[in-house]
């Protein structure tokens, strides 16, 4: 262990295979176990080289835990690793099936912000709908996770990327709608 650079791959540092569907509880157990091993506090009396290793390994472990425990961040990490550009056009394009809804929402958002009760009710209805779609997207995402883990392929990842873009867009809408209702 403490020789050579620490693993830089987020899955490798947990000692697990690359998978999109992960048992987060198991991941957490591994996070705690590896922290006990690597955290700099455990090596405070050791030499500089060992301490530097512990710090680097611990930092990567912490970053890996932050990314892998979150399904979206995890998916983006895998996409990036497979050469997909995840920042390009993300969340900018209006999903075609939502064009009309988004147009309507933008109309009432401003009025709702100004306190118009009818507009607020309108926004609340739209919010409920968007939240439902969001949870549908998450189910679809989990489906792709399982499918990809069983048979890894670029088609699944392409689908995943467009799904995540749509999710991002919806999430922004939900955020705006919630803000207007406060």
């Amino acid at each position: 262990m403490f020789s050579g650079p620490p693993p830089s791959d987020y899955f490798a540092i947990f000692g697990i295979e690359k998978k999109l569907a992960l048992d987060v509880e198991d991941l957490q157990r591994r996070f705690y176990a590896n922290s006990r091993e690597w955290h700099p506090d455990r090596h405070a009396r050791a030499g500089a080289a060992q301490l530097a290793y512990a710090e680097a390994a611990s930092a990567t472990l912490n970053d890996a835990w932050r990314v892998l425990r979150d399904p979206v961040a995890r998916a983006e990490y895998v996409l990036k690793g497979e050469g997909f550009n995840i920042s390009e056009q993300r969340g900018r394009d209006v999903p075609p099936e939502l064009l009309e809804e988004v147009f309507d929402l933008n109309m009432v958002l401003e009025e709702a912000r100004n306190g118009d009760a009818a507009a607020k009710a309108e926004v609340a209805r739209a919010l409920a709908k968007f939240e439902r779609i969001l949870s549908e997207i998450d189910s679809a995402r989990d489906g792709i996770f399982v499918a990809y883990d069983a048979a890894p392929g670029r088609d699944a990842l392409s689908e995943l990327r467009s799904l995540l873009n749509r999710r991002k867009y919806l999430q922004n809408l939900v955020r705006d709608a919630r803000a207007a209702l406060v």
């Binding site: 680097a56 611990s58 930092a59 990567t60 970053d63 835990w65 932050r66």
Partner: peptide, 8 residues
């Protein structure tokens, strides 16, 4: 609120 040590 990133756990430290943290790196970028």
């Amino acid at each position: 609120n990133s756990t430290i040590p943290a790196t970028a």
